Computed example of a mutant assay.
Amino acid sequence: MSSKKTSALVIAKTDYLRLMQLIEKNGTDAADALDLEISRAKIVDDTKLPADVVAMNTKVTFSDLDSAEEKTIQLVYPQDADVTQLKISVLSPVGSALIGLKIGGTIEWPIPSGKVRRLKVIAVEQQPE
């Protein structure tokens, strides 16, 4: 389940290396989808990652362009995921779709019913690791 991005992707080197380890250990379709998404990203030194980019452990607010509904989640590794706290795994469809997008970036996110949701990143809050 891959998403279509209309914006360039940027990923910090440390996140990229950790995500590649996660993908190698996890032989699922979700890991393959994440691999496909980050293979198109520009990898930058951690200190050069812009503050407006969705990275691991950031809180991201996005808007559903069709319903105008806004949601804020924290993008986390699978072991830290907790839907009740809105901590969403990078291996989830929306998690792999959001990683690397900047504020203003948009994605088309396929949902299981076969429809597509269009999402736009409207805020990013970096969280210390």
Rank of each mutant, 00 (worst) to 15 (best):
L17D: 10
D80R: 05
S96D: 15
S89Q: 03
S92K: 03
L22C: 09
L49M: 06
V53I: 12
K48Q: 15
G27A: 04
S3G: 15
V60T: 01
S67K: 08
T6H: 04
I23R: 13
P110S: 06
V83S: 13
S7A: 13
R117W: 04
V116Y: 09
T84F: 09
V54E: 02
L65A: 01
P110W: 05
Q85Y: 08
E69T: 14
A81N: 08
N26F: 07
G95H: 08
L49H: 00
L49F: 01
L34R: 13
A30H: 12
I73G: 01
N26A: 07
P78N: 05
L34N: 13
E37V: 15
D45R: 12
S63Q: 07
D45W: 02
P128T: 09
L17E: 11
K59L: 08
T61A: 01
D45N: 09
S92E: 03
I99M: 07
S92F: 03
A33L: 11
I122M: 06
I11T: 07
I88G: 13
T6C: 08
R18S: 09
E69P: 02
M1R: 12
T84K: 14
T106Q: 07
P110R: 06
G27C: 06
Y16C: 07
I38K: 04
I43L: 09
A81L: 04
T28S: 15
D64P: 08
